[in-house]
Structure formats: structure tokens, C-alpha cells
Design a protein around this nucleic acid. Structure first.
Lengths: 143, 143
DNA sequence: TTACTTGCAAACGTTTTGCACGATT
DNA sequence: AATCGTGCAAAACGTTTGCAAGTAA
């Protein structure tokens, strides 16, 4: 999903299109790694200097509610956001550069069935995240 | 791992055994659901009334460093802790009562291999969490 | 006795709220 | 013109730090 479609998505849901929102949206939509509210604020001010940090928080809240972005959980913290995954996609995060990649993991349905049988739970949702090192970082340095 | 073995584990690593630590440890070790520092503080004061919140934070920090507890990530927040998983275990959380269960998921190695091939990443770690409803809650109410 | 541990108070960083002004529709 | 959105300031919240007194070893 592109930044442009986020804007129409916002509009369709009764929200107004403002310079502040355009800046926040294009910042998150074009980033290859998760950004915290403070990082979004920092970066988006290049595009919209009058931007306030509070507006970043409020815009992120709306984008998350609309399902356009999602929070990324890492050992170091859980304040950062990226473009939301489509359906049954999962995250792959580079531990060096922080870049993130989405991949499909529908092979996992069988696992959930097995677990449900073993535990008596109904499984309704799942989070899967892989941590590793991306090909670019592998080239650049020894680990 | 029992609360008792946590204590000897602490002692082996040069830490002292105190009333405050015993209370924090037994609180987390016997809980069936993740507890936040504030919740640990609240519950552990029943056993050790003089306990301070700061000590809870400091004890949690040490227990996490020793690998005895782990942080649990949920959509509602990531401040809660439970007994750490053994090796390749994953979490299953009840969305109603909050109780947590650990299960083994070594079937996933093949998936990681596939992803690594497809993306060029080296996969070094993974998080898998399932959310659902436990058998007790299924009995008790309609969802 | 010595070094570690504690609780209190204060500091800190992040996130939220109240409000009057400004902008979009 | 009406409503929604904004930035500022202040408040609220969770967490961390400094320190003097207390305690385990």
C-alpha cells in the first residue's frame, strides 16, 4: 500500500488531509525500518517544519486504528511502527541495520491445529517474528 | 524451574538472598499469567510489606539478565514478565484470563531455512506467540 | 567488617490531556 | 460556517538514578 492510498483511506473514514498528516504518512510509508514517534517527528519535520510531536502521536494512533501501520516488538523496545502486514505475513528484522521484510507464513496453520489439540486452547491469532542479518549487512561486515 | 532454584541461582551468581527478593521471586514464579512490575509490587507486599517498587524493578532486571524470567509482548503492552521458556519453547496466551502456557515448536526449523533461502537473511532468532482462549475460559463463557 | 541491597525522593523520558487558535471541508 | 486538527504547555505515567541507612555474608 502506498502513501497515496493511505491518504484516500483516511479521507474515506472522515479524517481530513493536512500537511502534518501527509508528512507523517510519507515518512512511515517510505521507511525501510521501524520508526519511533520521536524518529517520525524528526524526519517528518524536513517535509513539514511546523509539525508538533503531539500530532505525530495522534496521527500514529489513527493510522494504527485503520490498520495501515503496526507496532514492531523488539528486545530493545516496542515503540516503533512500520507499514502494516497484509493478511498472514510475518516480520523479518535485521539485527544490524534494522531493516524489515515481510514474508508469508501460511505453512503454520498445521502447527496451530496441533497446538490447539494438545492444549485445549482455541488459537485465534499469532505473532511470528524472525531476527537475523540481511544480505546487505552480511556483505558489509563480519558477524 | 522452581522459586527455590531461582534463589540458589541468584546466590551462585554472587547476589544476596533477601526478603524482598524472595517475595518478588515467589510472586512471579507462582503466577500463571504475566505480571507487570506494579502488579508484582502489589502482590509481593502481602509477603513482604516493606517492599519498595524500585526494588521490584531492580530484581526483575537481575532475573531477566540471569534468564530466569522473560518479558511478554502483547497488543496491550509489553511490561509483563513470566518464568522464562526452556530452549525452543513458545508462548500461548489466553485472551480472556491472561494465563500463559509454554509449548515446544521445533517443527519450525524448516520454515526458517526456507525464509533464509528466499530472503538472503541469516535467521538467528525468532519469536512466536499464539493468542487464543484456554479450555477453562471456553467452558465458562461464550465467545 | 565489608560490600551489597534497600527504600525514599527526585530526576528523567515518553505519552497523554486541556485548550485556544488555525485549517479543511 | 461548522467541525476537525494543530501546536503549545502542562500533566500524567512508568522507569531510572542518587544517596544515606540497613542487612547479608
Amino acid at each position: 500500500m502506498s502513501a497515496q492510498s493511505w491518504l484516500t483511506h483516511l479521507q474515506t473514514n472522515g479524517y481530513r488531509l493536512t500537511g502534518a498528516r501527509r508528512a507523517v504518512i510519507s515518512t512511515i510509508a517510505t521507511s525501510t525500518r521501524p520508526l519511533s514517534p520521536a524518529e517520525v517527528y524528526e524526519a517528518a519535520r524536513a517535509e513539514y517544519p511546523g509539525l508538533g510531536l503531539v500530532t505525530v502521536y495522534r496521527t500514529i494512533e489513527k493510522l494504527e486504528k485503520l490498520g495501515l501501520i503496526q507496532r514492531v516488538h523488539k528486545p530493545q523496545g516496542c515503540q516503533a511502527f512500520i507499514t502494516a502486514a497484509n493478511g498472514h505475513q510475518h516480520l523479518l528484522l535485521c539485527q544490524i541495520c534494522g531493516s524489515t521484510l515481510l514474508f508469508s507464513g501460511d505453512e503454520m496453520e498445521q502447527l496451530y491445529q496441533d497446538i490447539a489439540e494438545q492444549t485445549g486452547y482455541i488459537v485465534r491469532d499469532h505473532w511470528l517474528q524472525l531476527f537475523g542479518i540481511c544480505s546487505q549487512c552480511l556483505e558489509g561486515q563480519h558477524v
